[in-house]
């Protein structure tokens, strides 16, 4: 399985990771090697096998509908690189 540069660009964009043009070739090579390695799974017969999403042999526990959290805007904003008037702030988004 080989990933071309356009594919790498596309997934990097989906993952929001900036890639410099000069790194693209090397990265595409590395990722292709990894995909070639995992390709071996195609030889395993998995007909009729249910995908296993969790090893925990239990079902989802439910919580009571009570307010137990919140009311801590200072703590929520404490680590923010940028905040103003009780809000997080980011470069303006134009819709």
């Amino acid at each position: 399985m080989s990933l071309d540069k356009a594919t790498v660009r596309n997934i990097a964009n989906l993952a929001r990771i900036e890639i410099r043009d000069e790194d693209l070739d090397h990265l595409a090579g590395e990722l292709s090697n990894i995909m070639t390695f995992v390709e071996q799974l195609s030889e395993v017969n998995t007909d009729g096998i249910e995908p296993m999403t969790s090893v925990a042999a239990m079902t989802l526990p439910l919580r009571k509908d009570v307010i137990t959290d919140g009311g801590q805007p200072e703590a929520v904003l404490l680590n923010a690189p940028e905040a103003e008037d009780g809000f997080f702030t980011v470069p303006k988004v134009v819709e």
Binding site: A15, E30, L31, T46, P51
Partner: peptide, 27 residues
């Protein structure tokens, strides 16, 4: 590298071939 691989195996058209397949082998 791992984020990119993970993004790739979950992306449209590849999910069944990689992620779903891996979950089956996991079982």
């Amino acid at each position: 590298r791992r984020i990119l691989i993970g993004t790739y195996v979950l992306s449209a058209g590849y999910y069944d071939a990689y992620y779903a397949k891996a979950q089956k082998v996991r079982r």
